[in-house]
């Protein structure tokens, strides 16, 4: 298929950017979206142009590096990561808009690459259980009810891609923060730091410049791992309990 791509090009953090139009041909259905961009980039290099910079790594949907807004939706039309989006979801002659994550807390570095280090700082503020190496009791010393373990796991599946923030009209990081709080606060191992964790993480989230949550739910719709809006409810409850 032949496609028209309108891609956000921005040479650096402080340089102005603009949507730039490219034509790309010879695309097959089995290609992933990133492989389609690989083809464009190979052509750009041979022409002596700068290839489009984008973050990517595992290309199997788990590292969370890839981050593109495709036709206005984070990760595009399917509920998955950009690397797992295939070209069979597009048709010959389509025009596709490709933009970086849109959020003040994720400044653009170049083209489609943004700085998501704010997420790391939220985790550093309390998204852990203090358990220095060597201090652990036997793994079976504390049984964990299966329901709690399963629910913790479902929230620990977050890949930290930032689609929730990019989708939110307020640029809120509530779903990301909530996923980690639910994961750790549900487990008996996480109980001692339950209150300080939620307070510190929410404070870090606010200080990083993310917006507030107004329950629009776009985050949960965009999440490629299916983390639900109920996480935010739990976060609010934990936060109120911790005051």
């Amino acid at each position: 298929m032949n496609l028209t791509l309108r891609i956000w090009r921005q040479p650096g953090p402080d340089a102005p950017g603009e949507m730039t139009v490219y034509q790309v041909g010879g695309i097959t259905e089995d290609m992933s979206f990133l492989e389609m961009l690989d083809i464009l980039n190979e052509e750009l290099i041979l022409r002596g142009d700068q290839p489009v910079a984008f973050d990517h790594d595992c290309r199997e949907g788990i590292c969370g590096a890839c981050s593109m807004v495709i036709n206005g939706r984070p990760h595009g039309p399917e509920r998955t990561t950009t690397c797992q989006l295939h070209m069979r979801h597009f048709t010959d002659g389509d025009t596709i808009d490709v933009e970086p994550w849109r959020s003040a807390a994720f400044p653009v570095i170049k083209d489609l690459v943004v700085d998501r280090s704010a997420f790391d700082r939220i985790i550093g503020a309390g998204g852990y259980i203090t358990a220095p190496t060597g201090s652990a009791p036997d793994a079976h010393a504390v049984p964990v009810p299966k329901e709690a373990a399963d629910r913790a796991f479902e929230h620990a599946e977050c890949i930290g891609c930032g689609a929730c923030v990019a989708a939110c009209p307020n640029g809120s990081a509530m779903l990301f923060t909530a996923a980690k709080v639910v994961h750790l606060n549900l487990l008996p191992q996480g109980a001692p730091e339950r209150r300080s964790r939620v307070r510190s993480m929410v404070a870090a989230m606010d200080s990083e410049g993310f917006g507030g949550c107004t329950n629009t739910g776009e985050c949960a719709t965009a999440c490629p791992k299916g983390i639900g809006l109920d996480a935010i409810g739990t976060l609010n409850r934990e936060f109120l309990r911790a005051r």
Partner: peptide, 11 residues
């Protein structure tokens, strides 16, 4: 060690 850190292993 991993259980103490909160790794949600299958149970």
């Amino acid at each position: 060690q991993c259980v103490a850190q909160g790794v949600p292993f299958a149970r």
